Computed example of a mutant assay.
Amino acid sequence: MRLVPHPGPAPDSGHGARMTRETRSLPVLAPDAVDTPFTILGYGEVFARDTTWNDHSHPFHELLWNERGASTAVVGARVWTVTPALGLWMPAGTLHSGSAVAGTRMRASFFGYATTTSISDTPVAVEMTPLLRLLLERLGDPGLSPASRATTEAMVLDVLEPSPRELLVHAPTSALLRPIAEAVRENPGDQRTLADWASELGVSSRTITRAFNAETGTSFARWIATVRAQHAVALLTRGWDVETVAEQVGYRSASAFGVAFRRTTGLTPGMFRA
């Protein structure tokens, strides 16, 4: 059996009022469950609606990135934000779900399981450098000769590597931390400090600190900063100005937001502006 990868069915035309959200269903497939004879196969789509995908897995490796806009990929309690600057490598057979905001111009490159080696056994961020993007664009040229395609594919595999920068949040699920996670998800600009939450939940600040380190692998402050950065990226890619985004995610000035954003992502807010 041969599979041509596709993120899902085309949106329904619908009747009457235009749908504002679309949900797509994809199968759960094991690595190499179907024939994937290609080395690298590209795909692109512009989403007219906010779109979500159910839990699914691919028989091939996948590199997700966007030319414009923002999307998310979820594996268990881990949530990555995918942007034009930061892509995500999804190894074959990894169960994941996802979403993309309307207007996102998504790109995906599928790597044949039998013809390529995964850069990681787990999902990892990939910095979408100008060279990597140029090589992937070249593979989309229908007039590319077989020899040139093979050379370009080899170059992609040579420069492709995990990035130390990523927009990743481990969502805490314990009864202790769930109120914090839900509140910050609802309002990333929530100004309650570690001491405020400790008082509200009737525990010590040390107890919350230990719980955050155990469940998320990071501190309360760094977790908050990353959640805010993820939310900020979604707003920036929708075209919001930096000052308004800074206010929405809880910073008193655009400069303070810029410093925190760069500390968290290694990138400037301007790199994500629509």
Score class of each variant (00 low, 15 high):
2 R>Y: 11
7 P>C: 05
10 A>G: 09
11 P>I: 08
11 P>M: 12
12 D>C: 06
12 D>H: 11
14 G>E: 08
16 G>F: 03
16 G>C: 10
22 E>G: 11
25 S>M: 07
30 A>K: 10
30 A>V: 10
31 P>A: 09
32 D>Y: 08
32 D>K: 12
33 A>Y: 06
34 V>K: 04
35 D>G: 05
36 T>G: 12
37 P>Q: 09
39 T>R: 09
42 G>R: 14
48 A>E: 11
49 R>C: 05
50 D>F: 04
52 T>Q: 08
53 W>I: 05
54 N>P: 00
54 N>R: 09
59 P>H: 12
59 P>M: 14
59 P>A: 15
60 F>A: 11
63 L>V: 02
64 L>W: 02
67 E>A: 12
69 G>I: 05
69 G>E: 02
72 T>V: 03
72 T>A: 04
73 A>C: 12
77 A>Y: 00
82 V>S: 03
82 V>A: 06
89 W>R: 03
90 M>D: 00
93 G>W: 00
94 T>E: 13
95 L>V: 13
95 L>Q: 08
99 S>D: 12
100 A>Q: 14
101 V>Q: 14
102 A>F: 00
103 G>F: 03
107 R>P: 02
107 R>M: 07
108 A>D: 01
111 F>S: 12
115 T>Q: 13
115 T>P: 08
116 T>E: 07
116 T>C: 08
116 T>V: 11
117 T>C: 11
119 I>P: 09
120 S>D: 10
121 D>Y: 02
122 T>F: 06
123 P>A: 11
124 V>E: 00
133 R>L: 02
133 R>T: 07
139 L>F: 12
144 L>P: 06
144 L>T: 08
147 A>F: 09
147 A>T: 14
148 S>Y: 04
154 A>C: 09
157 L>G: 13
157 L>C: 13
159 V>E: 07
159 V>W: 01
162 P>M: 14
167 L>D: 00
171 A>K: 04
172 P>K: 01
172 P>F: 06
174 S>L: 11
175 A>E: 13
178 R>L: 14
180 I>A: 03
180 I>C: 04
180 I>W: 03
183 A>I: 00
185 R>P: 03
187 N>H: 10
192 R>Y: 11
193 T>Y: 02
196 D>I: 04
197 W>Q: 06
197 W>S: 09
198 A>D: 08
200 E>I: 13
200 E>G: 13
202 G>T: 15
204 S>N: 07
207 T>V: 15
208 I>R: 10
210 R>F: 14
214 A>C: 06
214 A>E: 14
215 E>H: 08
218 T>I: 10
220 F>D: 05
223 W>P: 00
224 I>W: 01
227 V>S: 10
229 A>C: 11
230 Q>H: 01
231 H>L: 10
231 H>A: 15
233 V>S: 02
234 A>V: 09
236 L>Y: 07
242 V>I: 12
242 V>P: 00
247 E>V: 15
252 R>C: 10
252 R>Y: 07
253 S>A: 15
253 S>Y: 07
256 A>L: 06
256 A>P: 01
261 F>T: 13
264 T>A: 09
267 L>K: 02
267 L>I: 06
268 T>Y: 08
269 P>Y: 06
270 G>E: 15
270 G>F: 03
271 M>P: 03
